[in-house]
């Protein structure tokens, strides 16, 4: 049952993205920016938490979930440390994803060469 909810939530978030790409002039890079910013705002407004409770990874794996992580990290850090937390909390919460993307990006560049696709 959890997995069905995950599938539906994640799938739906992707369908919204696909419709935006095809129906508007938004490029995928802009979709990424839109999703993470929307995630931060929705999460701060308390609207994304319920989606995560319903969809679990279906809501955390999409980039809106990354925004949710940033916002929740910031808010709890502000509760603990005050204003300093506004600057440290978001990055601390999202550190795993960012460090992984940077490091694996670098590692892949070390190991592989880009190829043209002939098919």
């Amino acid at each position: 049952m959890t997995y069905l909810k995950v599938f539906l939530t994640g799938g739906l978030l992707c369908v919204i993205g696909e419709a935006l790409i095809l129906k508007t002039k938004l490029t995928p890079a802009r979709i990424l920016v839109l999703y993470i910013t929307a995630g931060v705002i929705l999460s701060a407004a308390g609207l994304y938490g319920p989606i995560v409770r319903f969809g679990a990874a279906g809501a955390t794996v999409p980039l809106t979930g990354f925004g949710h992580l940033l916002a929740q990290g910031t808010i709890s850090a502000v509760q603990e440390k005050g204003l300093l937390g506004a600057f440290t909390g978001g990055m601390q919460a999202a550190a795993g994803g960012i460090a992984a993307a940077v490091f694996f990006g670098f590692l892949t560049a070390v190991c592989f060469k880009p190829r043209p696709k002939d098919t």
Partner: peptide, 16 residues
């Protein structure tokens, strides 16, 4: 399309 862009995979691919 957006099926790989929207999940964290899209962010990772955009870095790699």
């Amino acid at each position: 399309g957006a099926g790989t862009v929207v999940p964290i995979t899209g962010f990772a691919n955009a870095m790699v």
